[in-house]
Computed example of a mutant assay.
Amino acid sequence: MSTTVTADIEVDVPVRVAYDHWTQFESFPHFLGGVESVRQFNDTTTHWVVKVGGVEREFDADISDQVPDDHVAWRSTTAETPHRGRVDFRPVDGDRTRIDLTIEWQPEGFVEKAGAALQVDDMQVKRDLHRFKEYVEKRETPDGAWRGEVHGGVEGTDPDLRM
């Protein structure tokens, strides 16, 4: 049985700033609990090292859909526990952004299943979004930004122009 966690938060930065920070995947350990490291191989593939319930896991994830200032969707490609997610960015006003996050995975083992049943996962995702809020509001200028699009796991700027 899969578990789905949804959470949202408003941050006091424009949508472009929030999006640009979120797409700096290697900075995730600064605000995502349990994430030890993220390496980005190219515009669509990342390698993660996470520690959950004392268990370290490594996996690759691919960006399946990405539109600047709008959303990023991903799915694991090598994880023992498959997961996928999506984060949406919506302007509230010129200097404020709503972030909606959805993550879905299949808990395995007693610790993960107990955590899901007790909604520990929900609390962790909400804490992570609060840490992201603090992070992005303190560091208004992102370290970098990639403004391209990904559709169906394929990089490009216009899905209608790809063969």
Rank of each mutant, 00 (worst) to 15 (best):
V52K: 14
V67F: 03
F132R: 13
D60P: 01
A7T: 08
H21P: 04
L101S: 09
D62A: 10
T44H: 11
H83S: 13
E36R: 13
L118M: 14
R84C: 11
K138E: 15
G144E: 04
V111I: 14
D160P: 00
E149V: 05
H47R: 11
D121V: 06
A61W: 06
Q40D: 03
T44N: 12
A73I: 02
P159C: 01
E155C: 01
G156P: 08
V120N: 09
E134N: 12
T44M: 11
G33D: 15
D100E: 10
V67W: 07
T45V: 14
H30T: 15
V72G: 02
P107K: 02
H30S: 15
P91R: 07
F28C: 07
D122Q: 13
K113H: 06
P68V: 14
G152W: 07
P82T: 04
H71Y: 10
H151T: 13
H151Q: 07
G115R: 06
R139C: 00
P159M: 06
Q119A: 12
P29F: 05
L161M: 06
N42Q: 10
W22C: 07
I99E: 02
V17S: 00
D60Y: 06
K51P: 05
G152V: 01
D12V: 01
F110Q: 13
R162S: 11
D93N: 15
E112G: 04
P82N: 07
G152C: 03
R147F: 00
E149M: 06
R131E: 13
R90L: 10
R39D: 13
T77P: 03
P68C: 10
K126W: 08
V11A: 00
K138G: 10
Y19Q: 04
K126S: 11
T102I: 13
G115D: 10
L32C: 09
I103Y: 01
R127N: 14
V136T: 02
W22M: 08
P91M: 08
I103C: 03
F41K: 09
D62H: 07
A114M: 12
I63G: 00
Y135P: 12
G109V: 03
T46D: 05
E140P: 00
D8V: 01
V49D: 08
A7M: 07
G148I: 12
G54R: 15
F41Q: 08
D93K: 15
R96W: 02
Y19T: 03
W48P: 12
H71A: 05
W105I: 08
E108N: 08
V136I: 01
K138V: 11
R127F: 00
W48S: 06
D121W: 01
T81Y: 04
L118Y: 05
V5A: 05
E140V: 00
R98Q: 11
A79Y: 00
F25G: 01
L101H: 09
L101K: 06
R39E: 15
T141C: 04
F89A: 03
T44Q: 12
F31H: 12
W48Y: 13
F132I: 11
S27P: 02
V35L: 04
E26M: 04
E10Y: 00
T102H: 02
I99G: 02
P107Y: 02
H47C: 05
N42T: 08
L161T: 09
L129Y: 06
E137G: 02
